[in-house]
Amino acid sequence: MLFKKLLIKLALFGLVWAVVSVLPLSAFVDSADEIIKKVEYNLNGKTAVVELTMVVKTKRTERTMKMESYSIGNNKSFIKILYPGKDKGITFLKVDNSMWQYVPRIEKTIKIPASMMLQSWMGSDFSNDDLVKESSISEDYTKKLLEETDEEYRVELLPTEDAAVVWGKIIMAVSKMYYLPTTVQYFDEDDMLIRELAYTDIKPFGDRFYPTRWLMLPKEPQKAANKTIIEISNAVFDAEVDESYFTKRALKRYSK
C-alpha cells in the first residue's frame, strides 16, 4: 500500500521533471529570477525606516523636500514630510493598493481617488501609482537575462499578462558586486524609452549596502527639462517597525 503511494509520487515527480526540462531557457529564467529577487530584497528588506531628501527640478523651479518613510515589505508604507516648514506634518499612508493623505492645515484625511493615482506625486516625476505599485516587480514581470558583463547583469522585465502596469518593458542593469540596480529604463509598448531611473552612491547601512542617490529622468520630449533626485541620508533595515504606523489613525497621530 505504502509502496504504491510512493510509486505514484515518483511518477508524478517524473512528469513534472519532464515538463520542466522541455521548457527552453529554463537556466536563464532561473538566474534572472534570482537576480531580481536579490535586488528586491536588498532594496526593500523586511522593514525599512528611511530618511530622504527629494529634489524636484523643472524648467523653472527647483524644490527640496525632506521626509521620513516607514515600510514593511511591499505592501505597507507611511511617509511623513519634514521639510519645507509649510508642508511639514503632511502624511501619506499606503496599504496594498490604496492611498490616503493627511493635511494638518485642514485637519483632514483624504483618500486619493482612483482617478488621481496616475498623477504626479508632489510634482515629482514619480506618480502616486509608482509609490503604490513599484514594489511588486518579482510578481508582475517575467525576467530574462539579456547580457552579462564583468560588472553588471542586464535583465529584461516583461509584464505578465495579469500585471496592471503601463510599461511595455523594463530593462534593469544590476551591479554584480552589490546585487543592486544601477539603471532602470522604462519603455512603452513600442519600445520607446519613457523614463530612466539611475541608482548611484552605494553606501553601507548596518549589514547591507544601499544606493543613496536616485535620479529619475523623464525622456518624453515635453518633460525633457525635468528631473527628480532622491538622496537617502539615513536608513535602518529589518528593525522592528511599529504596526500602528499603518493605520488611518496614524496619519493624524504621527503628523506632529
Binding site: V56, T61, R63, V103, R105, I106, K108, I110, M122, G123
Partner: peptide, 16 residues
C-alpha cells in the same frame, strides 16, 4: 469645504 492641490511651485496646497 477643504481642498487639496498643488501650488504653482508644485508644493502642497491645502486650505479650508
Amino acid at each position: 469645504v477643504a481642498f487639496v492641490g498643488s501650488g504653482a511651485d508644485y508644493s502642497f496646497a491645502a486650505d479650508n
